[in-house]
Design a protein around this nucleic acid. Structure first.
Length: 236
DNA sequence: AACACTTTCAACCGCCACCAG
DNA sequence: CCTGGTGGCGGTTGAAAGTGT
């Protein structure tokens, strides 16, 4: 009820502002969770016709969905080679380092984690890592240690109660050791040590393709404005 | 067992960049 | 150059699952 009224409000607002029509017809399209049948239809269609042309895809595939919804479902869930489930410790460490370097650019971060999607990385950051950093007195936005907050000792008693499986305890303490190490760097240089060459996974084929197709001017060596070069080559 | 509260994560939304005409 | 269509991105939402009382 409330949703419909806000949708109408927003819709009329955008029509007024930019006279821009929505990418899909709102009427008659399904919303919410996808059914098995819908998934199957989408997979079948993409397997025979390939992904792309998202706006016309739903009609062609016989789906009562918005094209964007189809794209999201494919990219985040149905696409082959998607890694699901718990993040490994090295993945978590890499996310933290990449976030310190790139900020909330989830697609770029996810691009360095084979099999992970931007949505998954974003969710994991917001529900796990962010909370963890805050608990440890680290500002998740700038990765700096809060001045007033004492650095906790990496003892088992400091682990989270909500996720207290043995596995998680291990992960938490590992992260702590990693972050304590990092905060030491922060305190000495006011910046994280962002040398990513150690834990860096090789670029995916897609990334390499992407790189090939771009002019060299867009291939950027990321150098912090006030720090030494990280040695990380990013394809932006 | 029942309820309240918290956490997780799939999905939606609007904005913006890019490109073809 | 301008405009409209399209794809991609990051922020946000809300239902479901989990946990505490």
């Amino acid at each position: 009820m409330h949703y419909i009224s806000t949708t109408i409000l927003v819709f009329t607002h955008t029509r007024k502002k930019g006279m821009r029509k929505p990418c899909c017809e709102k009427e008659g399209t399904n919303k919410g969770a996808w059914s098995k049948q819908e998934d199957q239809k989408l997979v079948d269609y993409i397997q025979t016709h390939g992904a792309g042309r998202w706006c016309s895809l739903p009609k062609a595939a016989g789906l009562h969905r918005c094209g964007k919804s189809c794209r999201l479902r494919w990219i985040n869930y149905l696409r082959p080679n998607i890694k699901r489930g718990n993040f490994a410790q090295d993945e978590e460490d890499l996310i933290i380092k990449l976030h310190a370097l790139l900020g909330n650019r989830w697609s770029l971060i996810a691009g360095r984690l084979p099999g992970r999607t931007d949505n998954e990385v974003k969710n994991y950051w917001n529900s796990h890592i962010r909370r963890k950093l805050i608990k440890m007195g680290i500002d998740p936005n700038n990765h700096k240690l809060h001045q007033t907050f004492p650095v906790p000792k990496p003892s088992p008693s400091t682990t989270s109660t909500a996720q207290s499986s043995a596995n998680n305890n291990d992960r938490v303490s590992d992260t702590q050791s990693c972050l304590v190490e990092e905060t030491a760097t922060v305190s000495s240089t006011s910046r994280l040590n962002l040398d990513l060459t150690i834990a860096f996974s090789p670029p995916t084929n897609a990334l390499l393709e992407e790189h090939k197709s771009r002019p060299t001017s867009q291939c950027t060596n990321i150098i912090h404005e006030d720090s030494a070069p990280s040695g990380l080559l990013l394809f932006l």
